[in-house]
């Protein structure tokens, strides 16, 4: 690989992190009052906003209605100002449609949809600033928003990306590391049971390395889980205190 050195001889990455270190995470729940649930997350310089509406009556074509479970409707969009070069359309292009589909699959695995027959749950996520790991930031923000909306989940869904450089798996890739062109793995897991909600890998990787990369990504998801759990519990504590009763 030409160009910049992604992992120094001392074992540090370009931004000074260790291979298994996450970027700084800051998150907040309940950022909008109008929506049923909402959340905002910052993972390093990647910033995402998620909003959840529902469960509610199916709007539009009623043919989509499922008699035994709720349908999940996702939309992924990137703000026009989120990337280095201004984007022309925030959503609806091929990359966004694919991401929308991934998000839908991820949350269908986690939400207990059978409790809400004939209804619909909307999840809208927007990337406000893209610096790598867009999918994982979206999943993490959406998880917090779904929890905020009081929608029953099997478990949190935590997502993280991983790369592979010089026989070392790197977790939570930044934009610089993503664009270097190596292998990238996106993983969404239900951390308690270690169930995989989604796994996606682009470009090739030797079979022998897959396991170490998966392990690193799973561990990173668990680390993320600890952070998200802290956010949820703080929010819970704060709100129950003010309601009092």
């Amino acid at each position: 690989m030409a160009g910049i050195e992604l992992l120094s001889d001392q074992g540090y990455r370009v931004d000074g992190r260790k291979p298994n270190e996450l970027r700084k995470i800051q998150a907040r729940m309940g950022v909008f009052s109008q929506a049923d649930g909402s959340a905002y997350i910052e993972q390093g310089n990647t910033k995402a906003l998620a909003v959840v509406y529902g469960p509610h009556e199916i709007r539009g074509s009623r043919s989509k209605s499922q008699h035994d479970r709720a349908i999940i409707n996702c939309q992924y969009s990137m703000a026009t100002f989120s990337t280095g070069e201004r984007k022309r359309r925030p959503h609806g292009d091929r990359k966004s449609s694919e991401m929308t589909l991934h998000l839908k699959q991820t949350f269908e695995a986690a939400i207990l949809t059978q409790l809400y027959p004939r209804s619909q749950i909307d999840i809208y996520v927007q990337i406000l600033q893209a610096d790598g790991g867009n999918y994982s930031a979206c999943v993490n923000a959406a998880t917090l928003a779904v929890v905020d909306a009081g929608i029953p989940l099997r478990d949190y869904v935590c997502a993280c990306s991983a790369g592979f450089v010089e026989d070392t798996p790197l977790v939570d890739l930044s934009h610089l590391e993503e664009s270097a062109g190596g292998t990238q793995l996106s993983l969404a897991v239900l951390p308690k049971a270690e169930h995989l909600a989604l796994i996606e890998m682009d470009s090739r990787l030797h079979q022998d390395h897959l396991e170490s990369m998966m392990d690193a990504a799973t561990q990173a998801c668990k680390d993320l889980y600890a952070v998200l759990d802290r956010v949820v519990r703080d929010h819970l504590q704060e709100v129950t205190t003010s309601i009092g009763e």
Partner: peptide, 16 residues
């Protein structure tokens, strides 16, 4: 709202 007394007796849980 830290000035309010912390709710201790309640059993708070998160999904999972």
């Amino acid at each position: 709202s830290t000035d309010l007394p912390k709710e201790q007796g309640k059993h708070l849980v998160a999904p999972g």
